[in-house]
Nucleic acid binder design. Sequence first.
DNA 1: TACTAAACCAAACGCCTGTTAGCAAATTTG
DNA 2: CAAATTTGCTAACAGGCGTTTGGTTTAGTA
Lengths: 188, 188
Amino acid sequence: MSRKEQIDQVATSLFKSRGFAATTMRDLALELGIEAGSLYSHIKSKEDILQRVCFKMADEFNAAFDEVKNQDVPPSEKLRLAIAAHVRVLTKNPPAAGVFLNEWRHLSEPSLGKFHEMRFQYEESLRDIVRAGIATGEFKVTDEKFVVLTLLSSLNWLHMWYKPEGKMSPDDIAEFLSNLLLNGLKNF
Amino acid sequence: MSRKEQIDQVATSLFKSRGFAATTMRDLALELGIEAGSLYSHIKSKEDILQRVCFKMADEFNAAFDEVKNQDVPPSEKLRLAIAAHVRVLTKNPPAAGVFLNEWRHLSEPSLGKFHEMRFQYEESLRDIVRAGIATGEFKVTDEKFVVLTLLSSLNWLHMWYKPEGKMSPDDIAEFLSNLLLNGLKNF
DNA sequence: TACTAAACCAAACGCCTGTTAGCAAATTTG
DNA sequence: CAAATTTGCTAACAGGCGTTTGGTTTAGTA
């Protein structure tokens, strides 16, 4: 792993636990055992790190979802697959997921606009699945926007408590969440 | 409304949109049309504001939940009531809810510890409801911790998109979320 | 060994931060 | 009206911020 990647990784974990604005370059340097100025041999700026983390995660979400998108299965099954893909990315690197989900707002233009659009596209793809399920009658709900919002909400809190050494694997979690959302507490 | 309350309110909306660390006292003063130093005739410190917002919201959540706690209804119905209470608090003041949910980590000890404990108690009360539902066989699920985590996740994203002028009332939202979580997408 | 390139340090830069002090209006109260 | 309190301003403080600069050490290569 290159020094630059190491910086990104340590910064990611600090950004997640303290927040982007509350993490200083001197904190970051201390964690790496070097001086703050030395960081600038490897990176362009503080926001430079944030940009790389955010867009790398965005790419991973898109890549995982692309494998689901064009499968020829019923909407409910496709939603299960999408949830599993999302959970897989989320749990593979919880600190980066946390930064992606909570610190993106510290991006400045034009990165911020680009980020917004990517997220909209991702959500729109999910809404497509729900709309298809409504059309076939498989889903009884009518408001696909609300459903996707709630779906993502319940998934995106995962990085707050997920621990790789816990007893549930990412696939276990995905199955649990799929059952809960599709069948509900009563018919789980 | 006293000047102090006005400061808290404006600060709350800034803390929510920019984050606590990224909001300066000079920003806040500018928004109020006064100088930064003048703020200190009314408040003790920047974190002083954050503390007041966070603990006031915590009190509101507890107060709303207390009215549900001891009602003699089946667990599933009690959960519905708890969800409705939670949503009501969340939508009554979305900026304050946002600060409560995302900025509490900038509290320092001993406030931080006290905050953690209050949240734990709140979550534990919710787990009690789910456990009761499992015991009566009303809920088919086994992991009450996971359920409550997911439940709160889906509720606590609300402040990000809820607009009072929207077409759904807080009660509509609560009913939608209750149906989704209890019955699922398929049996909604 | 001699050369190169990457990694790092020490010091400083200009600016921004929360907060304080002393004083002056303005408003409220008796 | 007079006293007291609230509210605000100006100016400054001490320290922290991201970043730059110029020079030095370290590691790799021929």
